[in-house]
């Protein structure tokens, strides 16, 4: 195939996935959350159980006025949503759905995904700092503190998996995966899961947004499409983190008939993880700021370090 055409085709399909999967997750959250609270959720848009609610929301957001506060740092303020959103798109491009179904197969995929998704923090910090609003500033600071402290356990738990597989390639990790890893890497998987939810700033780790305390955190001053981009980046983040968790810890496309059903397995596993993330948000109250830091430094980091040591010892012993 013509290389240029192939690049365009791959980019467009990644973009399509990037636009569709977060909407599905968002709609699932609408409905699951509503029913968990004894409500019905959206019922009108699109006719059947409000399936087009998020499309309608997008249409509404597009029509809204795009306001930039007078005291805001204009360029930083306007750029922030893009900085929050694009890293997830980049990260999504290298996550393999099946051995062949991947936007771009990068050798050091793990490193690439972690580096890319960490850039998203900057978007929040920029938005919080540039809004010229005390709530936004507080939220931005909280976001920075939270994301920095949870980045460490996240990276450590991923390092453990990479060490176990002996490769930094995401498809390589899935190939090396064995069902026993579910047990062996369990502490690391739990650390990764908790840290990933905290990275996404979803409940119970939504301290930076904390709408009952600081209005909407870094998003306070945003309206219209820019606000929608922040929301989209949150759901895109859920998609990326669920897919990453599936690929790293749940063996991606491994499963019955994985030759033909590989992508289905990956997507099904990450759908379960997404629902779990939604479920946690509905069930648990928000952590206080100090509890949040305590959890990261006193629980997650030690557990991740122990897991890393355990993996290292095992790898050294088994390779002898």
């Amino acid at each position: 195939m013509n290389p240029v055409l192939e690049v365009v085709l791959r980019s467009v399909s990644v973009l399509a996935v990037f636009l569709v999967l977060p909407l599905i997750v968002g709609q699932t959250e609408h409905k699951v959350m509503a029913h968990m609270q004894g409500r019905l959720g959206p019922m009108y848009a699109g006719g059947f159980h409000g399936w087009a609610q998020l499309v309608a929301d997008a249409a509404k957001f597009i029509q809204k006025e795009d306001i930039t506060p007078r005291a805001a740092d204009r360029w930083v303020f306007k750029l922030a949503p893009a900085v929050a959103l694009v890293p997830y798109l980049v990260a999504l491009a290298v996550i393999p759905i099946s051995p062949t179904l991947v936007g771009a197969d990068v050798d050091a995929g793990v490193l690439f995904v972690l580096a890319a998704s960490a850039v998203g923090i900057l978007g929040l910090l920029m938005g919080g700092w540039a809004s010229a609003n005390k709530y936004a500033l507080l939220g931005g600071m909280r976001a920075a503190a939270q994301l920095l402290s949870y980045e460490l356990p996240l990276v450590l738990s991923v390092a453990s998996v990479a060490l176990a597989a002996g490769t930094l390639s995401l498809s390589g990790i899935v190939d090396a995966w064995h069902p026993l890893w579910l047990l062996w890497q369990l502490p690391g998987a739990m650390v990764f899961f908790v840290a990933a939810v905290a990275e996404l700033q979803r409940g119970p780790f939504d301290m930076p947004i904390a709408d009952s305390e600081i209005v909407m955190g870094p998003f306070t001053e945003y309206t219209g499409l820019r606000f929608a981009f922040f929301l989209l980046s949150e759901y895109a983040g859920i998609v990326v983190m669920s897919l990453l968790f599936t690929v790293l810890f749940l063996g991606g496309w491994h499963g019955a008939f994985s030759d033909s059903l590989g992508p289905v397995w990956t997507l099904a596993k990450s759908a379960v993880i997404s629902v779990l993330i939604i479920w946690m948000r509905v069930s648990w109250p928000r952590l206080r700021e100090d509890q949040l830091q305590r959890l990261a430094w006193l629980v997650l980091v030690p557990v991740a370090l122990v897991q890393l040591a355990l993996t290292a010892v095992w790898v050294v012993l088994s390779s002898r």
Binding site: H35, Q37, G38, M43, W279, V282, S283, W284
Partner: peptide
């Protein structure tokens, strides 16, 4: 406590809602 929270929400999910449209 955390598990109980999850169970409560899951049980509500399985039950018909009280909403009148």
């Amino acid at each position: 406590g955390l598990v109980k929270g999850l169970i409560t929400t899951a049980r509500t999910l399985g039950r018909p809602t009280h909403t009148t449209e």
